[in-house]
């Protein structure tokens, strides 16, 4: 029986010495593993390439074994260009995709988190769009990197990844009145748009992101204004990140991404629909899940559905 090939993590592949030649596909792979390992190793504090290879050898001597020097640059300096470009490019990407997380952590801690994350979870996708896919899980598993605001950071990473998903995930044709004609409530099954993300957060991180967005609109080059804004931001973060349970729909409407706060019952109802329940059983299970029995006006639920339909949240199964 043929063994299924397993994806090998670069961190598991220690290439001890460069291949002496590259005359086969295997030797080409060895050379590429070696170079990728070197390029993806974290930079030093002054943004240079590390001076020692993983086995303690001098990096200068090691790199000289497979990279040629030229009149201007040593082998080490030539490879260092790629090492630096790798980190600058990927860190820039995370900075762009996670402004809220950066605002909570500050530049230094964000940078440390990002480097550790990319070391542990290098990109496994052809597109940088997916670079943050595992960030929330990484934060959950390494609380020491985000203390003392670990839970806030986790929620923010979830929200910012949901934003990425909502931005360009598929939108299916919305459900129409014709799709519902002649059906009983027990038979009606909606499907939620794939771009709609339902989040259950412990901190109001959506308010912080929206406030940052507003501030960007007001930003001025005047340094005194920037100083005032930074001070205000610190106060805002402290104020906005007091514990508060938030149910949120992150969705796309007319190609813009929006955050819609939801009532806990609305959130449960939508989640039941996402899991495939019929309209009737979704309502029943959402009401059953309420901590305290609650009489809900059927007209209220009807209005919710009208609103969600207007936002295009439902698609045909």
């Amino acid at each position: 029986m043929r063994k299924r090939s397993r994806r090998t993590s670069l961190s598991n592949v220690v290439v001890k010495k460069p291949p002496s030649k590259t005359q086969s596909k295997r030797e080409l792979r060895d050379l590429q593993r070696l170079m990728a390992s070197a390029v993806m190793r974290p930079l030093t504090a002054d943004d240079g390439m590390q001076k020692r290879w993983v086995d303690g050898r001098s990096m200068r001597g090691f790199v000289a074994e497979f990279i040629k020097p030229n009149a201007n640059l040593t082998s080490f300096e030539r490879l260092e260009i790629y090492n630096r470009q790798y980190w600058f490019r990927l860190l820039d990407c995370l900075l762009e995709d996670y402004p809220g997380l950066r605002a909570i952590l500050g530049d230094r801690k964000f940078s440390r988190l990002a480097v550790r994350y990319l070391e542990r979870s290098p990109s496994a996708s052809f597109t940088l769009r997916n670079l943050g896919r595992n960030l929330e899980r990484f934060i959950a598993n390494t609380p020491e990197l985000t203390e003392p605001r670990h839970l806030q950071c986790r929620d923010m990473a979830r929200l910012e990844w949901a934003h990425t998903e909502a931005f360009d995930t598929e939108a299916k044709a919305p459900v129409t009145a014709n799709d519902l004609l002649g059906k009983k409530p027990t038979e009606i099954r909606f499907r939620l748009q794939p771009h709609l993300q339902l989040l259950d957060l412990d901190y109001p991180v959506d308010a912080l992101l929206l406030s940052m967005k507003r501030d960007r609109g007001l930003r001025s080059d005047a340094s005194n204004t920037m100083g005032r804004m930074r001070a205000r931001r610190r106060t805002q973060i402290a104020r906005l990140l007091r514990s508060e349970h938030v149910y949120l729909g992150v969705h796309r409407f007319e190609n813009g991404v929006y955050y819609k706060r939801l009532d806990p019952l609305q959130w449960k109802l939508l989640n039941a629909i996402r899991k495939g329940s019929s309209l009737e059983s979704a309502c029943a299970s959402a009401l059953r899940a309420e901590k305290e029995p609650r009489d809900v006006d059927p007209e209220l639920i009807q209005r919710w559905f009208q609103n969600w339909s207007a936002l295009g949240w439902f698609c045909a199964r």
Partner: peptide, 13 residues
């Protein structure tokens, strides 16, 4: 090249 063992450098190496 730019990827090896399913890991991407996002560079043109």
């Amino acid at each position: 090249w730019g990827s090896v063992d399913g890991r991407y450098t996002h560079d043109l190496l």
